[in-house]
Write a protein that binds this DNA or RNA. Sequence first.
RNA 1: GGGCACGUAGCUCAGCUAGGAUCAGAGCGUCGGACUUCUAAUCCGACGGCCGUGGGUUCAAAUCCCACCGUGCUCGCCA
Length: 627
Amino acid sequence: MRTRFHRLKPISTQSATTCMLQVLRDRIIEDMTAILEEWGCEAVAVANPVEINEYTDEEKGLVATPVAFQLASELGRPPADIAADLAAAFRDRGPIGGIDTIETVGGYINFHVDEAFTTRTLEVILEEDAEYGVVEDTVESALFEFSSPNIAKPMHIGHLRNTVLGDVLGNVLEARGYDLVRDNHIGDWGVQFGHILYEFEQAEDTDRFESEPIDYLLELYQRYGRHEAELEEKDRTDDLEQLRDTGREYFARLEAGEEELRALWEQFSEASRDRFETTYDGLGVDFDTWHGESFYVTESWTSRVRERATESGIAVETDDGASVIPVFDDDLTAVEDPERADVRTDADVAEDDTDHEAFVITKRDGTTTYGTRDLATIAYRVEQGYDELFYVVGSEQREYFQQLFAAARKLGYTDVRFTHVDYGLIDLPEGSMSTRAGRLITAEDVLDQVRENARSVVEENDPALDAPTTSEIADGVALGTVRFENIAKRRTKNTTFDTERATSLEGDTGPYVQYAATRGLNILLEADEVPEPGVVADQPFNEFDHQLAVQLARYPLVLERCEERYDPAPLAQYLLDLARVFNKLYHENRVLDADQSRERRLALVAATVEVFETAFEVTGIPMLRRM
RNA sequence: GGGCACGUAGCUCAGCUAGGAUCAGAGCGUCGGACUUCUAAUCCGACGGCCGUGGGUUCAAAUCCCACCGUGCUCGCCA
């Protein structure tokens, strides 16, 4: 699915991407620093002295600085005067490549880019090809955990968001120089499997597992929930405890390795993984490893961290035989950061101390908890030698992860960086999702609905199209819709799921962006060859051409911003902008039959398609030949 | 109650990290225009907002600080 429809030959290979805007900004800052030093005002230097505007016009420069305002009180002169002097000083220092004129408007100093900037931008994109915006030197090796569905349950729209967000963010980090191992940390262990195993043994309809394994397992899970609820409702407290004990006992037997239960569990696990594979195929998502939680139990990592905790004295045994690591409030400062984290390495808890939480690593029945397995996972990953561990997990687990990281530091895992990439919850109009209550929308349901919507649009637009092509386009549009939808919002936002909106193909959506890219691609396919920007640089560009070139220049900065925020949303927003600007150009300008600008515009369109393709690879949005 | 997020047009959201200049933006919805042209899944226009509230910092605040209000999540020997 990540095929590129065309590939432009690289003219030269470059090790690192060139961001024209970055080059300009750095140069201007350099000059400005020198000037301010001459003036004796270097102390005024501020965090962000030079701004890059998204658009350029007659008045505003693409690059500008309001630094004169900051100097005004220092120098006791009006900003406009200072700006004029500064601009003159800039001019005296000689020309800046890519900058044409330096003008002032009030206290602003505007740097207007020239044609050489535009040409160079196009050249860089066409030369660097798929490497445009990419940082090639490896900065860090990291384990990147995302998706992580639970077996015996279907993937729902929450997993969908996690999976797409995680996959795209992973791509962003790789483009920014991270060496990632993607791990699907399957939720395949815990007392809930004791519950399911118990219900399975009680059930008389177990033959249904063969034909519809996931639905059946889900039903068993819900059955247990109903049994609990019934007893609770009737206030049969003793029976309820009895049921819970039994569930715990089944899990304890599973964890102890009882063969019969283990064999059943294997079947559950395998059926679930098969189903997940299908969903991931449809989404175009891949993992390097699928170590589930069970892996760390089976491979004795849980025992190892327990021993380590006990021997080092950071864990204490409670009266009823459980083992806990006390995590104090003070332990939680900057736990993610290996440089700044500072935790207590004893477990001396005064009788009435309340400034700590007990992080349980052995329950009183001897079994592991989610936390035990996560610590074991950290132990394993640290031994693998990663610099950083990423966790793409919902924000509802924020406090938990703080405690987990603190516990890991106490265990002596002090060199690795932890990053919890949290994101807002998705709930339904009727309330929060509940698998147990059957209140959920599955990922497959959403995909199917979008495919159906897409198919009917394709059939309406192009009734003569053959069936396979229709499906191919519909699938491509559906994937583009779902992937875009799940990354376009800032990740910290909560969302109430709206089926109509989430499956819509109109407005600020994936198909809008795909359509623009497809139009561009078709212009290229009509043209026989793409000229070199430098050779045709004397052909005229109008404002639409220039706006588009400016958008293209921004791309590397957008990727950088995505990395800084650990959020692909800025990239999605950028794609909307790029598509808008391109659509406008498409409407206003002719390319193939332009009088004087044909070749230069072809280079511009080629660069645009290149950026679309590169960004599509990052976001996993398919590039379509037609739609 | 403590902690963490979020609060911008009727609705869904950008913009906030690094405060700047018509910076109040997009989409949906509503109304009205544009296909003999490289695909109209497009484009253009109109309508629509004291940027939750109140203070503060600053030459300058949607953006930073404080307080408050509202919403969500969280504080399990669940995951």
